[in-house]
Amino acid sequence: MTLTGEKQHITIDRGQSETIVLTVADTNADLEITINGGAELNLILKQTTVNAKALTTNTTINCEANSRINISTINIEPRNIANTLIVNLNGEGAEATLNGLYVAGAGGAIENRTEIHHHAAHCTSTELYKGILDGNAVAKFAGLIQVAPGAQKTAARQTNRHLLLSPDAHGYAQPHLIINADDVKCSHGATSGQIDREQLFYMQQRGIDAATAQRLLVAAFANEVVALIPDEATRQELTALLSADV
């Protein structure tokens, strides 16, 4: 399947399991996805070549009871890309995994807006977005977890981490929780930092030059997300793109 820029509907039938890899290159994405009861979708939305014009991706996913969605949003060297991802957990026992990786350098601007709405009880969501920002890249992560009244036994965890490599890089994070049920376990964490000086020194002490050590540490930072992508070819492609030449 390829992106048309128009609204595209995807339905995963009851009990089915599918993996869809969509490449974002020069067309906007506008996806409306329904995952029926017990069905499973692995969706990968990846941009790995520099985009010529500003792009948006809008994805809304409706998850019925006991369905599973695993979505990976990958942006390597984005130029002005805004991703909006809305996940509605409508049926009990639905499970959502959202992973994001963005690697932006000079002139890069990337925005990830995610909303996970826990409408039903006993749903789980796990979200990990990591960004590596170099040059004067600007990244914004705005993640909302909303738990509706009655959505008891919700478990939601959201994590956002920014690695800043340059004094001009700029990272914003807005990890928001709106919780209206009490028997829940919800948490989020957000961090911003640079390459760990102690790790860098340790590697230099073993004779690895500073630039290589930094590349290895950056790749390690990204690998945490890459390892979670449920598609071997994508993992390999990203590992090759990110790997330090040693």
């Binding site: 914003y172 994070a173 807005q174 928001h176 929780l177 919780i179």
Partner: peptide, 12 residues
């Protein structure tokens, strides 16, 4: 119970 943190980091 709601949590709305904002962080704006412009220094590595």
């Amino acid at each position: 119970a709601h949590t709305f943190p904002y962080s704006d980091i412009n220094n590595p």
